[in-house]
Write a protein that binds this DNA or RNA. Sequence first.
DNA 1: GCCAACGTTGGC
DNA 2: GCCAACGTTGGC
Length: 161
Amino acid sequence: MAKQYWLFKTEPDCFSIEDLRQSPGMTTSWSGVRNYLARNILRDQVKVKDEVLFHHSSSDPVGIAGTCVVTRSGYPDPTQFDPESQYFAPKATLDSPIWYTVDVKFQLKLSELIPLSLLRQTPGLEKMMVCQRGARLSVQPVTAEEWRVVQALIKKTGSIT
DNA sequence: GCCAACGTTGGC
DNA sequence: GCCAACGTTGGC
């Protein structure tokens, strides 16, 4: 299958691109997604080697902070089985898990975050999901063309790897 | 299965 | 802090 592209949202106070860069193996499990549509995407569509825009939400400014790559496709989110976790799901069992996660590895961190306001002004990104009003989905598809346009912005902005 | 009430997300 | 969008819950 051709490589696919995604956008993952996270609140940097909770987990930032820098947190990912400093994680063991620069890799993390994208656990804690508790929305069914996002769950279905993680479980069914996100594949190893797919590339991901790492998006900071509820920050100032909000926007793309870096990129990462999928290193493990959908598997049951361990936090749903952990009574100590804020993501614990009492009804989930090992035999019938409810929530899924994927693993992602750090690729690059932008020298400066690319603000959502800039994305909205950039030709070619008018239809990008994150640019739409009220787009709350935390795991979003990104088209190959949108990815290409964002790559140009990343090159222009500068980044560290 | 409908839909009102309620809760959460997230940009501003 | 506000509030629009939208997801979830639960009574019927």
